[in-house]
Amino acid sequence: MLPNAITAAALCSGLTGIRFAVEGQWSFAILAVILAGVLDGLDGRIARLLNAQSRFGAELDSLADSLSFGMAPALILYMWSLQELDRFGWFAALAFAICCALRLARFNAQIDVDEQPHKSAGFLTGVPAPVGAGLAFAPFYIWQETGIELFRDPVILSIWISLMAVLLISNMATLSWAAIRPRRGIRLWLIAFMTLAFAALLLEPWWSLTAISAGYLALMPYALIKYGRIKRRRAAERAMMRGGEGVSQTDA
């Protein structure tokens, strides 16, 4: 019950963001979607802690993610800027919402698949839906702080969210925070850093979100390089195993 209740709360938060957007309260609209992302990060962990995972919960989570991180951001950004482009702005919003739904459908289809190279190596396939929504809002973060209308330009925003849509359904390896296991020697430093980051979010939320978005994008090449190393190491290990089997058969 508890994990599913949190998932439902995340869904309510994401949909409430649309209501704030209709009323022109852009900051509240986007913060509501970000709150949905926080709740989405909690429900799965609580389900694992309580050993309360279920197929129903997984389906509910994907449905909530599609609405909160696909449909809601698309509508919010359309009302904020993209509607000035009329049809092309709407196509960009549709592309983001559809790609988010496709990503979640792919995730559900692979739940029971044993062979998942990215997952077995501690990576995700493509950008997660909550992260994609957060990245799609990046121009708003900067616009909110600087007031520079360039970041609200519908053409630039259309290109930006189209790129985020591509990242959602891409096959590239991305970092999985759940797989990160910091060494004991840096855990206190990490706790201190997280505390300061939380304080920064309270004091300067938009600049902090901008920094988080930039940091995530900067880490994407690192994830590709790291996964490439793991992939090459695995290929070498398989080649050695096949070579060993060949030698054994020859000896026999």
Rank of each mutant, 00 (worst) to 15 (best):
L11K: 04
V22W: 14
V247T: 08
S54M: 09
T210P: 03
S54A: 10
Y222G: 11
P130F: 11
A47R: 02
I142N: 09
W206L: 10
M220N: 11
D112R: 11
A252F: 07
K231A: 14
R103L: 05
M1G: 08
R234M: 08
G132P: 02
E149G: 12
A136R: 00
A10R: 03
P117A: 11
M164Q: 04
R45Q: 14
L102F: 11
C100A: 05
A52W: 00
H118E: 10
G228V: 06
D114T: 12
A8E: 09
L67R: 01
S27T: 07
R106K: 14
M194I: 11
L167R: 05
V127L: 14
E145L: 08
A236G: 06
I142S: 11
A95L: 10
A93I: 03
I111A: 09
T174W: 09
G70N: 00
I161D: 00
G147W: 07
T174N: 13
L202A: 13
I34A: 13
R183V: 10
L150D: 10
F91E: 01
M241H: 13
A173T: 03
A235N: 11
I161N: 00
A173C: 14
M79S: 11
Y227T: 03
I18E: 01
S68N: 08
M220K: 06
A178W: 05
A165P: 03
W90H: 02
N108D: 02
W177A: 15
M220S: 15
G244P: 09
A136P: 01
D65A: 03
P73V: 05
G24R: 03
E115C: 14
I6N: 04
A52D: 00
R242I: 13
A105H: 06
N4A: 10
T195I: 13
L201K: 01
L124K: 09
S54C: 08
A223N: 12
A179W: 01
D61G: 01
E115V: 10
E115W: 15
W177F: 15
G147S: 13
A9K: 10
A211L: 13
S176M: 02
I225Q: 07
I76T: 01
R229N: 14
V33P: 01
